[in-house]
Design a protein around this nucleic acid. Structure first.
Length: 420
RNA sequence: GCAUCGAAUUGGAACAAA
């Protein structure tokens, strides 16, 4: 049994949930009953593939087989719901567990708070925290890190700093995740002085920065226009024996692309490959976008070919960047070709893809085609947003067709999209 | 403890400016 569980967990960890599930069935067929750990492991596997409904099916199956879910099982499902923003269902599940006499533990609360932060309900997360401060499940380092990260993402940096302070007063030691979350927020908010203080505090506590800490710092520096400094940090991390990973490279590549350095960025991709760090879809998308923004869509198209040759499957972002790139060059034929190609490849265009093409048609003077595309979009169940409408309104205006522009303005309001 | 929680990376509009 133990052997099966270890093996099943291994398959889940390498994203082979299906094989894990087959093993579970094989176990049953050979007369060995899967236990609560087996089920929880596979449920976790499904949850991390965002297949929550499949996870639920297995959950019901385990109950049918008279295997009682425990706290870990519930927490696993809870996490699956929270990661997918299904907070109402999460609360229901919490009630259900209480009903079965399973009191939520710190894992449950930490999971819940993470879900609330992720869905923008940070104040509710803070409420959970405050209640727990009074109750018998005091916040741990994970709770604090979750909330600090959430406050940062909600642009509430001062509150994040205050909470960090409170944490230290409450004798709960921050760890590398806590420091990194706060430093990341401060960097992105362009409060570098304070970010440095956090790094110094880390050093004092002998808490070593890891690859996430450095990557986050590099990204923050890039996003606030300090690519040179980011490059210095990149060198420093290597000196200190922390190996850059694909995220580190991607951040720097993005920074270079945004600052006239697309060619250096391309070189950096070569360099990463040479050091055995393989580019992923984000690397390719970043570079394709960088080239497109510089009016170098044909080169981006070649990179698009490279990525496919390396079995990196283009996604909706890849296509959107390319479509935008060719629209910018007013090569609307090529843009449309790519749009049809993505449909053929089974990649669904989203509101961004459509909007770029609508804009492309407009700038190429093909306002009627743009209007037709808007209809096509609605027909394919993709809701236009302010961006889409604004492009088309602008297209009509620039073509001197003010009456139609006004009509469209009314239409968008009628469709529940408020003009800004 | 054979299973559950927290931190980093990619795409779109108008106006103004050139």
């Amino acid at each position: 049994e133990w052997t099966f569980n270890v093996l099943i967990n291994g398959f889940c960890k390498v994203h082979k949930v299906h094989r894990a599930y087959l093993l579970l069935k094989e176990m049953k067929e050979s007369g060995l009953e899967p236990n609560v750990v087996t089920y929880s492991t596979v449920i976790h596997g499904f949850c991390r593939q965002t297949k929550v409904d499949t996870a639920y099916k297995l959950f019901r199956q385990m109950v049918e087989n008279k295997c009682m879910p425990n706290l870990v099982t519930y927490n696993t499902l809870l996490s699956g719901l929270c990661q997918n923003g299904l907070m109402d269902e999460a609360y229901e599940l919490l009630d259900e567990m209480r009903g079965r006499g399973l009191e939520p533990d710190k894992f449950s609360y930490d999971t819940l708070m993470a879900g609330l932060c992720k869905t923008g309900k940070i104040d509710m997360a803070l409420k959970v925290y405050e209640d727990n401060c009074k109750g018998d499940c005091p916040p741990d380092v994970v709770a604090y890190s979750t909330l600090i990260s959430g406050l940062c993402k909600a642009d509430r940096l001062d509150e994040a700093c205050k909470l960090f302070q409170k944490m230290r007063e409450s004798s709960c030691e921050p760890d590398v995740v806590t420091y990194t979350a706060l430093m990341d927020g401060l960097c992105k908010g362009d409060r570098l002085r304070e970010a440095e203080e956090v790094l110094e505090a880390m050093e004092e506590k002998n808490c070593a920065p890891n690859v996430v800490t450095y990557s986050s710092l590099i990204d923050g520096l890039c996003k606030t226009g300090k690519v040179r400094d980011a490059q210095e940090v990149f060198k420093r991390m290597i000196v200190r024996g922390v190996e850059p990973n694909v995220v580190t490279y991607n951040s720097l590549i993005h920074g270079l692309c945004m600052t006239n350095g697309v060619d250096s960025a391309l070189l950096l991709m070569e360099e990463m490959t040479a050091t055995g760090c393989l580019p992923d879809i984000i690397t390719y998308n970043t570079l394709i976008d960088g080239l497109c923004k510089k009016g170098r869509a044909p080169e981006a198209n070649r990179l698009f070919g490279d990525m496919k040759a390396k079995f990196c499957k283009p996604d909706v972002i890849t296509y959107s960047c390319l479509i935008g790139g060719f629209c910018k060059l007013e090569r609307i034929d090529m843009a449309r070709f790519l749009f049809d190609d993505m449909l053929k490849q089974g990649v669904l265009p989203d509101v961004v893809t459509f909007s770029m093409l609508v804009e492309g048609y407009c700038t190429a003077g093909l306002v009627d085609d743009a209007a037709a595309l808007l209809e096509e979009m609605i027909a394919s169940d993709c809701n236009p947003d302010v961006y889409t409408y604004t492009s088309l309104v602008d297209g009509f205006c620039k073509a001197g067709r003010i009456v139609e522009a006004r009509k469209l303005l009314k239409k968008m309001a009628k469709r529940g999209c408020k003009p800004n």
